[in-house]
Write a protein that binds this DNA or RNA. Structure first.
Lengths: 187, 187, 187, 187
DNA sequence: GATGAATGAGACTTCATTCAT
DNA sequence: TATGAATGAAGTCTCATTCAT
């Protein structure tokens, strides 16, 4: 699976055939289809594996005591996770945007699905209720959450494309940026 | 080409084989390879076509007289463009993230390439020089530009996944968000 | 047809598609299929054209009065003809060795067909009957004829592959060679 | 590979598609591209295989002690080899005259290449130096070598076209012919 | 006469998958 | 467990041919 992840990162999902992965792993093709009923299941395993890793990683976030700290922690933790598993994250991004069912619909990626934004929206809601953030209407919270999330996801792309990408700095800047964006306006 | 764009939008780049495109267009496969030397050239045409459309569209932005207005206009215009050519934009996104050369490197998409962020960075620089934005260090400008751009690109994904996506609202919110993020801090 | 001949010479029969020929001629593909019912008929015309040219050329040979002169004249005339129509001859060689019917049998080239050797065999027979050549049994005459013919055909290949090929010299040498081979032995 | 050779012999290089070969072999097309990366490599293998066979076969020739015997042995051995591997030889002849690169140039067959004539030229040189052959100028030796070679190559064509072709007789006659052609003239 | 669009067959190749060993 | 042979579907591309204009 590690080699599969590397391969997908290097040459993309479409080119990452079982033959290619096997060649890079120095084993026969058969050994892959022996361990995984199908290519799709291999991919599913890679995706689920990352979710498991992610779940434990993300549990830290909830420990913060203020909305502002929690937002900061959300960004930090997500970017740390991406840094810690950069290839895995990039591979899953490839899989998620390419695996489709027979009808052609994406299986994993549901851009219309709001679930991914829910935690962020909750933080924002909490923050504006307790007065630590500026007033944020539900619509604004939604868009803010989308923006934060897309900025985080961008880090993964940058990281694989450019090994010198400075994640620490990016995190610091992103936190500062969204603090400015949620801060109460001047009187 | 229109059918090709539709097909890529519907079932993704990888599944959008010449056979599929031809079937949807109600013509024979040969008719496509007759008009385009190869599939790659068809894709290239689709990409270039969008760039041409985009270039004329974007020229409006430069006409604004303040950095703040220009940033607003940048966001507005980009989102209008995405709305006006939603399928084409989505198809190009698919192409750009999937077409690779023999070595496996992406041909069109260069995440490490900074060129796309330059216009935004210039706006931000201008704005902080003339005092209409808060002080923004070069690093911050870079990250801010990346964030704005990724929020804009997200709109395209949302639009194809969800026909009810309200672009007007999204634009309004995004403008407001980045105004808050660039506004001078309270004293 | 001239362009077709050139094309076949340059890139071989298999690659000489109607499209290639049309492109080199600067006309549309249609113009070829308009003038020739099918590609096969175009090829047939090229072959027949050369036969017509050849027939008039070869008539000179019969005018010689001795077998020895006639053999010399046969070689000379054939090589002159090849030189005069080098591309056409080479193209026909390509066609003759490649055009096959649905069963896969060569249409033009019948290596087992003895017809092509008959004129030479007659010269040799005549020469040994009138005593100007050494005794040559029928089997020997057959092989001698085959050898002469293949040496002549070789000239065409050499000519297209090597523009500096000296045909005059080759003719002189070939004549000398087969004079030595047919000369009466020393007592 | 054996079936490929048979197929090429039967229906020619151009018609000998992987599909045809597979059908005759009673296997699926995939099995061929499984064992050979590409059709070109299959053909290359067939050619190289024959060269290997040929190399060991031809080593016998050098053992002769006189130029005259060596020439005889050269002809004999070559024709024996052709007889022993008639299909393989014929297939390679097809390949050699048809496989071209993208520019249209023959890859294997270089009619302008003199290498193939060198052994024969050396025999002839040797023979005229030690006085067993008539005086043969370099130019004559070249043409003589070409003639011998083309007469030998002709045998392969005859053999596949006509199963009754008598190779033994052909060899005997060819030897006799070229002995006559190299014999010293009468005083 | 000439053109260019269109077709459909067939070629090579890739690939996920199956299976005997 | 692991391998390598084999399969068959699908993909891209080439090409002779047809046909309306």
């Amino acid at each position: 699976m590690e080699i599969a992840i590397e391969t997908i990162c290097d040459i993309g999902y479409a080119q990452a055939s079982i033959g290619q992965i096997a060649k890079r792993a120095g084993v026969s093709k058969g050994v892959i289809t022996y361990h995984f009923p199908s290519k799709d299941e291999l991919m599913q395993n890679i995706v689920e594996d990352l979710y498991l890793k992610g779940a434990s990683f993300m549990s830290k976030i909830a420990t913060e005591s203020t909305a502002s700290n929690m937002l900061r922690r959300y960004i930090e933790t997500n970017l740390e996770f991406i840094l810690a598993h950069k290839q895995h994250v990039a591979a899953v991004a490839e899989i998620v945007m390419n695996v489709r069912d027979e009808e052609g619909k994406l299986i994993y990626h549901q851009p219309a699905d709001n679930a991914i934004y829910v935690p962020l929206i909750e933080i924002l809601q909490w923050g504006q209720e307790d007065g630590s953030f500026r007033p944020i209407l539900p619509t604004s919270a939604q868009v803010l959450a989308m923006t934060i999330r897309s900025a985080i996801d961008l880090a993964s792309q940058q990281l694989v494309a450019n090994p010198d990408f400075n994640m620490k700095e990016y995190a610091k800047e992103l936190i500062q940026l969204f603090e400015a964006a949620t801060r109460k306006s001047p009187i």
